[in-house]
Design a protein around this nucleic acid. Structure first.
Lengths: 189, 189
DNA sequence: TTTCACCTGTGACGATCATCACAAAATATA
DNA sequence: TATATTTTGTGATGATCGTCACAGGTGAAA
């Protein structure tokens, strides 16, 4: 819970009282490797604060998984479209390592937010941060070629490369595994 | 202002009183064609509700503009990362047609939100909608090839094709203008 | 240690794309 | 209307990428 408190305090002002009022919406949950946090087709009812381990969000297209995001320690994992709208999620979220997460239940979170402005602001800031992260990676695809996307990740998110396999990274960068291998090779001076 | 009220009511519950309290944060503003709503390098202090006309968000990379979004009537235009964080925007927003917009001033909006839960909820829902739209188009790039991205826009956002030139659309789809022309030609039965 | 599943690198080849160049068509402006 | 500007289509060519195929390497479980 300490990590979550630090995460919250880094984002917004949050009193002891708000923390206590937030508790009913929280629960800890563990996931084994390759266990689903969210199955595609299900409605996303939760925000997952990742304490330990990491997971990935992906779409399955013609039997092939296309990764759209990785969520590492001290980040919030969710499907923002399904969580916000209540519609089924087209993407799944799956644990890449054993995960310890603190789960925000949507219904209970909204009840707590209705009571306290600080919790309402917390929810807003979580969405804002999530949107900013999404914007960052969406921009990657809009303006860069594959090799530049790799360079960007190497510079701005080097920790990702320490954890994620080439296969998973290639899927995230939007190229075939073989192409990623060749991009690496091509630019070695 | 009617269009804005309809937009708000479609999204969240909003009393007469909240509407009155929101007024100080609002102003109407007009932009000529090719006038900037937001210059790249500036901090985004506003949400622009588009009443008439449309605009596009773009990055300039090596002298070439890469479109990342179009904002048409009854949509909110902004740079979510700069608006949320207060950092400079790497993207610009420019009017593609003469625009009439209702501008939400960030500072005054936050003051109004601090007073009223409904306005706070409005802000949260605006961000949520914006994030959902962003997620939709980010996914486009993650999982589809260029020709499938075009097919998606044709099916889900046909009104875009009525307004936007091939050149602008190609930039948005992430292909050269010539390639878009050939994609169209290639699949005609 | 051996086996087996999985990950990574690499070659070959066809498909798709970017780029340069130029002409035709559409649109704006005088 | 006539002229200028912008937009679009198309050919040629080289670069990049996806796919199929296979080999070497790594790590986990028997």
């Amino acid at each position: 819970m300490d990590a979550l408190l630090r995460f919250i305090h880094a984002m917004t002002t949050f009193s002891e009282e708000s923390w206590i009022r937030l508790q009913p919406a929280l629960s800890t949950q563990e996931f084994k490797k390759n266990e689903f946090l969210l199955k595609e087709g299900a409605v996303c009812q939760s925000l997952f604060f990742i304490e330990k381990g990491y997971c990935r969000s992906f779409y399955e297209i013609d039997g092939v998984e296309k990764n759209t995001a990785f969520y590492l320690e001290n980040e919030i994992a969710t499907n923002i479209r399904s969580f916000g709208s209540g519609e089924k999620s087209a993407a799944g979220i799956i644990a890449c390592e054993p995960i310890k997460a603190i789960v925000f239940d949507k219904k209970l979170l909204f009840e707590a937010a209705a009571q306290t402005a600080e919790i309402e602001a917390l929810g807003r800031n979580c969405i804002r941060l999530f949107a900013a992260k999404q914007d960052e990676f969406a921009t990657l695809f809009n303006i860069y070629a594959a090799k530049d996307r790799l360079a960007y990740i190497e510079e701005k998110h080097p920790h990702l490369l320490q954890r994620v396999s080439q296969t998973q990274l290639a899927s995230f960068l939007g190229v075939a595994r073989e192409t990623l291998s060749r991009i690496r090779k091509r630019r070695v001076p």
